[in-house]
Simulated scan of single mutants.
Amino acid sequence: SEIMRPQLSSSGAYWKTDGMQDTDICITTRELAAWIKEENIDFDALEDSTFDKVFGESSGGGKIFGNSGGVMESALRSAYYFHTGEKAPAEFIPFEPVRGLNGVKEADVTIGEHTLKIAAISGLGNARKFLDTHLADNTLTRYSFIEVMACPGGCIGGGGQPLVKMPQVKKVQQARIDSLYQSDSNTNVKASWENPEIKELYDDFLGNPLSERSEEFLHTTYEDQSELLGPMKHVTPQTNPMSKQYKPPATTEKK
Rank of each mutant, 00 (worst) to 15 (best):
D137V: 07
G207Q: 02
S1Q: 12
P196C: 04
K105A: 06
D132M: 11
N40G: 11
R142Y: 07
N208H: 10
R30V: 09
D137M: 04
H114S: 12
G157L: 00
T221C: 05
D42I: 08
F205R: 04
D137L: 08
Y181W: 14
C26W: 02
R142W: 04
S11W: 00
D132W: 07
Y246K: 11
E113P: 09
A34S: 14
E47N: 12
G154T: 03
K129R: 15
L116T: 07
Q182S: 14
L32K: 01
M72G: 07
M166Q: 12
Y81C: 03
S78A: 10
K247R: 10
V235S: 04
P152K: 02
I198Y: 00
E106V: 11
T133C: 06
E253M: 15
M20V: 15
F55C: 00
M242I: 05
I25Y: 06
S122P: 07
D108R: 11
I111V: 11
T133K: 15
G19V: 09
V235N: 03
F82W: 04
S185I: 01
A127L: 04
L101F: 10
G160C: 02
K233D: 10
S179V: 08
L116Y: 15
V164R: 01
A107W: 06
S144Q: 11
G56N: 01
S10H: 04
I198T: 07
E39H: 10
I36R: 09
P167E: 05
G153R: 02
S11D: 00
V104N: 08
L8E: 06
Y222T: 12
E223M: 12
V172A: 03
V109R: 00
V189R: 03
S144I: 04
R128V: 11
L46P: 00
G123H: 03
A127T: 09
L218F: 02
N188D: 14
G153I: 05
H234F: 12
L163N: 09
D18C: 03
P89T: 08
S74T: 06
N40D: 14
R128F: 10
Q245L: 07
D52Y: 00
M149L: 13
G61S: 09
S192G: 13
D137F: 03
L116S: 05
W35A: 10
P97C: 07
P167I: 04
E147M: 04
K129Q: 14
T220P: 01
G62I: 01
A34G: 12
H234K: 15
F95W: 05
W193A: 06
A33V: 13
G56E: 02
S10F: 03
Y181R: 13
T28P: 05
P196D: 10
Y143E: 02
P209S: 09
G158S: 12
F95T: 01
G103L: 06
N126R: 02
V172S: 04
M166W: 10
Y222V: 15
G159C: 03
C155N: 13
T239M: 15
I3N: 02
I64G: 00
L228F: 13
D137S: 10
H83L: 15
S10G: 08
C26E: 10
I41L: 08
K105L: 13
A250Y: 05
Q238M: 11
V148Q: 00
N240Y: 06
I111W: 08
D18W: 05
N188C: 08
R176V: 05
V172K: 08
A79Y: 13
S211N: 06
Q174S: 08
N195S: 10
S59Q: 01
E197D: 02
T17S: 06
E227K: 12
L101K: 03
A34E: 12
A120Y: 03
L124V: 10
